[in-house]
Nucleic acid binder design. Structure first.
Ligand SMILES: NC(=O)c1ccc[n+]([C@@H]2O[C@H](COP(=O)([O-])OP(=O)(O)OC[C@H]3O[C@@H](n4cnc5c(N)ncnc54)[C@H](O)[C@@H]3O)[C@@H](O)[C@H]2O)c1
Ligand SMILES: NC(=O)c1ccc[n+]([C@@H]2O[C@H](COP(=O)([O-])OP(=O)(O)OC[C@H]3O[C@@H](n4cnc5c(N)ncnc54)[C@H](O)[C@@H]3O)[C@@H](O)[C@H]2O)c1
Lengths: 214, 214
DNA sequence: ATATTTTTGTGCATATTATAACATATTTAT
DNA sequence: ATAAATATGTTATAATATGCACAAAAATAT
């Protein structure tokens, strides 16, 4: 039975990893798994796995474990991967193109509808059969095409402005690659990908453990 | 006086954000800041800021606050940004090229030395004046050129193999973009960038708060 | 000079998160 | 059928992390 208490961010961040490991089990034709066995593969404690999953329902069975396919589907549903999302990318530079070209997001239900840039040299080129539009058309495009997720791949100086346009047109989810914290109303979700922060964490950890010697 | 206790990952993950906000203050010619004022900008509590910073030393002064430039430099040092790192990228596809082209990593001290791919069509092309080498040369390259950080941008099926080669040649830091958990000895640090997990978290949060209606 | 204000560093309380323990249900083996 | 083994969901306990409060120190104002 699903619990009512608010799920903590710590749990949420682990869900995609469960999803990934369950997908792997499926491709290996493993159709049942215990929290103990999953624990050994995924690296969380069995107790944590049981507690995490129990936030969302009684998916397991005593003496048996979890049915892999069922659990995979359930977690997919919890993550919202049973739905389809219309996405756009603003900024067709390095990261914008990389994300646009990554076809696996489509399989997860994230459908790229349009790409925008302000550079005339990029406007008109095709990325995965999608023609890059001038960012001047962003407002009118969004007015006509309801969009679920906006992906920001512009330099940080322009990120807030792009976000504002997205919010104005009802976009509720923003995936932000610019190294800045954009301000949005409470009913808009921003998920940041701060690559520089990730790299800095790596260098911190290298030095902390004295593994790095110049 | 710097503390001896081990710094928690929660604190470490906040350090790059301090660094970023301090850089911003510097460009705005603000040369002193209190934990209270920083708190209002950065969104952490003033108490947390003071406690975080105090893990590494008494950087502040009662009645005054923190000197922005000094603190910026200190945090840079803590993050290891006062050092230089030799990096290589393996996998010159979408993400590999995006990362290679991002010149700001150079400014932080991460110096891209070489790029490898197995695709003959990519071998020989130049990215930021660096010629893409055949991955068959990776072993001999690393044997001759000590490298600090290896950046993995190959499909997940090849990630472990690439990591093994890196580890064999003494690379101690791996920045991994492949959606898989690579296995390395205890003295090697892996920092993962799992973009799909980030996107799934966004869709979870969209659905959780009922902001998404298909 | 003195008083007032500011603001840190830190001890302590609270809240959150993770782990361990176990009663209970189910499966497997005999 | 019965016993032993397995493995869950859940409660209890431990470990972490955050926030509050305040003495002490320094800056600023009078
Ligand atoms: N490439 C990386 O590895 C990397 C790493 C860390 C952070 N980032 C961040 O990701 C973002 C994109 O980086 P990138 O490397 O792709 O940069 P890029 O310069 O290659 O691409 C940015 C694109 O945005 C376009 N643009 C600029 N202003 C615009 C606007 N107002 N509207 C529409 N398009 C606009 C530019 O024409 C350009 O094509 C930046 O904020 C960058 O800091 C990138
Ligand atoms: N592009 C994205 O937005 C995105 C998102 C999430 C995850 N990723 C992950 O990042 C990695 C790279 O993605 P991408 O989009 O750049 O893919 P890509 O196919 O564009 O690039 C992969 C590159 O690796 C090369 N390669 C393959 N095997 C190799 C080997 N053994 N040695 C050297 N080079 C090899 C290929 O020739 C190719 O150029 C993948 O693991 C992918 O799952 C990418």
């Amino acid at each position: 039975m699903a619990k009512e208490t608010k799920i903590s961010m710590a749990v949420i961040r682990r869900l995609p990893k469960y999803h990934r490991y369950l997908a792997e089990l499926l491709t290996n034709d493993i159709d049942r798994i215990s929290s103990k066995e999953l624990s050994e593969r995924i690296g969380f404690t069995a107790s944590q796995i049981r507690q995490d999953l129990n936030c969302f329902g009684d998916f397991g069975q005593q003496g048996y474990g979890y049915n892999v396919r069922d659990l995979y589907n359930e977690i997919g549903k919890i993550l919202g991967l049973d739905k389809n999302y219309k996405t756009i990318i603003v900024g067709a530079g390095n990261i914008g193109q990389a994300v646009a070209n990554y076809s696996k997001f489509e399989k997860l239900g994230f459908h790229l509808q349009a790409i925008f840039d302000k550079n005339p040299k990029l406007v008109g080129i095709r990325i995965r059969d999608i023609e890059v539009k001038d960012v001047d058309c962003l407002n009118s495009y969004l007015a006509q095409n309801p969009t679920d997720i906006g992906i920001i791949c512009v330099p940080k100086e322009h990120a807030q402005m792009v976000a504002d346009i997205m919010v104005k047109h009802g976009i509720k989810g923003i995936w932000n690659f610019a190294p800045t914290d954009i301000k949005v109303p409470d009913d808009v979700i921003v998920e940041n990908v701060h690559l520089s922060e990730s790299l800095m964490t790596l260098s911190y950890r290298l030095n902390e453990s004295n593994l790095f010697n110049e």
